[in-house]
């Protein structure tokens, strides 16, 4: 697997036309978060990601309205957390990075909370707090 820093990974991912940064990664790029933990991305096909390393696939149907197809690339510096979806989230361009809009994140989390009932109590609580935080972000 590639041995690169978080920021190098962000830059290299942004060069893949199909990649949209979502969730916390999008917030970080847009300046709404100070820390970058995982790099969350949405993509329609994982093949271009194989240049980063082996792509581990998984399934998680807890995000309402998304396909549930997930993948992970555990780089040494950062985990690339992948949503494989034909339908792309709404995005804006920020300094050359395609970033999911805050409105799109709020919409997804609201649907997820409304229609999905699996997952732990702690996870659900975390999602509610996260939703409230997103709603308090001042956007144009």
């Amino acid at each position: 697997m590639l041995n690169i820093s978080k920021k190098e990974a962000l830059k290299k991912l942004s060069e893949i036309d199909d990649v949209i940064f979502v969730g916390g990664a999008s917030e970080y790029i847009q300046g709404y978060k100070n820390e970058l933990n995982d790099i969350d991305i949405s993509i329609t096909n994982i093949n271009p990601l194989k240049e980063f390393g082996y792509v581990h696939t998984s399934f998680d149907n807890s995000f309402y309205g998304l396909s549930g197809d997930r993948a992970l690339i555990p780089l040494k510096s950062v985990l690339i957390d992948i949503f494989i979806d034909v339908v792309k989230p709404k995005f804006i361009m920020v300094n050359g990075f395609k970033c999911q809009t805050i409105e799109s994140m709020i919409e997804l989390r609201e649907k997820t909370l409304k229609y999905t009932f699996n997952g732990s109590y702690e996870n659900r609580l975390k999602m509610i707090h996260n939703l409230e935080r997103l709603k308090n972000i001042p956007t144009d």
Binding site: M1, E51, G53, Y54, H56, S58
Partner: peptide
């Protein structure tokens, strides 16, 4: 032969 959970990459490079 990589499985969903386990796979090989080249060091400092991509998947095989």
């Amino acid at each position: 032969g990589g499985s969903p959970e386990i796979g090989l990459s080249k060091q400092n490079s991509g998947a095989l």
